[in-house]
C-alpha cells in the first residue's frame, strides 16, 4: 500500500528520497548517528558548521535545559575546513542522503572561501549559509539581521558555490523575516532554511548570573515549534511560493505530526534538530510517519501537501 505514496521531493533541482533532513549541529559531520539509526534513511543531511580554520568554541556551560526546550551557545566549535575535507568527506561520499555543508565564518571572505573550496566536491549537494547563529561575537547573526548585508554575503557565497545549491538559514531574531528572506532570494539563494534558534537567556537566581558562559544562547526544541511554523508560513506566502523557492522548515520537530505541520505551512522539506539528541533514530521514524499520514489522508504525492494550509 505504501508504494502508492510518493514522498520524494524536488528540492532546488535535486531529487530527495524523502523530505526529512537532520539539522546542522545536531547530527555531527557525517555518520556520527550511524550507531543509533540508519543515516541512509534520511532525505538530507546538514553538517555541523564548518569554518576555514578550526574553532575551539565557547567556554562552558554551553547548554541549559528550559521548559520543553534548551539553550545552546556552542560557538561554532568545529574541526575546520582542511580536516573536514580529509576526514569527513570520504565518509560523506558513501552517504545516500543529499549532504549540505553548513558554512560559517567571521567575514564574507571566510564564508566564500569555505564554499569555494568545497564547490567542486561531488559528494556535496550544496551549502547552508549560516548567517543566523546567535552565539558568536563575529559573523553569524550579525550578517543575518540586516538586509543589505544578507544581499552582500549571499551574492558572494553564491558566486563561490558554483553549481551547488545555496540555501540560506534565516534567523527568527528580526522584525520582519520576509525582508531578510527576500534579500537572500534576490541575491541568489536557491532555498531557504528556517528557523535558526531564538536568542534567549536563563538566569541562575542563586548567583544572579546567566547560566551560560556566553550569557545568551539559542532556544530550540518543542517550545519554539508554533513560532517556527508561523514564520515558515509567512515566508512561504510572502516570498517563497511565487518565486518557486523551496523552504527547509525546522524548529522543535520531534514527530511526524510536527513535520506535517511544517509541510502544510509551506515547507518542501523539514529538518530535525534538538530531537536527535534525545532520540537519535527519530528522523527515520518521522519518514515512516509521514508516509502513514499520506496513506491515511489519501495523498499520493507529498507535493499536494506543501503549502496546503486551509484558511477560513
Amino acid at each position: 500500500m505504501e508504494e502508492a505514496v510518493d514522498i520524494s521531493v524536488d528540492f532546488a533541482g535535486i531529487r530527495l528520497a524523502n523530505p526529512v533532513f537532520t539539522a546542522s549541529g545536531t547530527c555531527g559531520y557525517a555518520d556520527e548517528l550511524a550507531d543509533f539509526t540508519d543515516v541512509n534513511a534520511l532525505g538530507g543531511f546538514i553538517t555541523k558548521s564548518i569554518t576555514l580554520k578550526p574553532k575551539k568554541g565557547n567556554a562552558t556551560p554551553r547548554i541549559v535545559e528550559t521548559d520543553s526546550g534548551m539553550l545552546n551557545a556552542i560557538g561554532w566549535a568545529n574541526i575546520g575546513l582542511d580536516k573536514f575535507i580529509e576526514e569527513k568527506l570520504p565518509i560523506i561520499e558513501k552517504m545516500s542522503a543529499a549532504v549540505f555543508v553548513n558554512v560559517a565564518g567571521e567575514s564574507i571572505d571566510e564564508y566564500a572561501a569555505v564554499a569555494e573550496h568545497l564547490a567542486g566536491e561531488a559528494a556535496i549537494a550544496g551549502f547552508e549559509l549560516n548567517i543566523s547563529c546567535p552565539n558568536v561575537a563575529k559573523g553569524g547573526i550579525t550578517f543575518g539581521t540586516d538586509a543589505v548585508q544578507v544581499t552582500e554575503i549571499t551574492s558572494a557565497v553564491k558566486k563561490a558555490a558554483g553549481e551547488k545549491i545555496l540555501m540560506v538559514k534565516l534567523s527568527p531574531n528580526v522584525t520582519d523575516i520576509s525582508v531578510i528572506a527576500r534579500a537572500a532570494v534576490e541575491a541568489g539563494a536557491d532555498a531557504l532554511s528556517l528557523v535558526n534558534t531564538f536568542t534567549a537567556m536563563v538566569i541562575d537566581i542563586e548567583t544572579g548570573k546567566p547560566v551560560l558562559a556566553n550569557k545568551t544562547g539559542g532556544l530550540s526544541g518543542p517550545a519554539i515549534k508554533p513560532i517556527a511554523v508561523y514564520l515558515v508560513n509567512k515566508v512561504y506566502n510572502e516570498v517563497a511560493k511565487n518565486r518557486g523557492i523551496p523552504i527547509l522548515g525546522s524548529g522543535g520537530i520531534r514527530t511526524a505530526s510536527d513535520a506535517v505541520e511544517f509541510i502544510i505551512a509551506g515547507a518542501t522539506a523539514v529538518a530535525v534538530g534538538t530531537a536527535n539528541f534525545i532520540e537519535p533514530g527519530c528522523a527515520a521514524k518521522i519518514v515512516e510517519g509521514i508516509k502513514k499520514y499520506c496513506v491515511r489522508k489519501k495523498i499520493t504525492n507529498i507535493k499536494e501537501l506543501t503549502g496546503s494550509l486551509g484558511i477560513g
Binding site: 548517528l33 567556554a59 537519535p280
Partner: peptide
C-alpha cells in the same frame, strides 16, 4: 558537565 546528547554530537560538554 551539562550534556545534551552524550554521544559526541552536540559539543555541549566541553572540558
Amino acid at each position: 558537565r551539562m550534556m545534551a546528547c552524550g554521544i559526541g554530537i552536540c559539543q555541549s560538554c566541553a572540558v
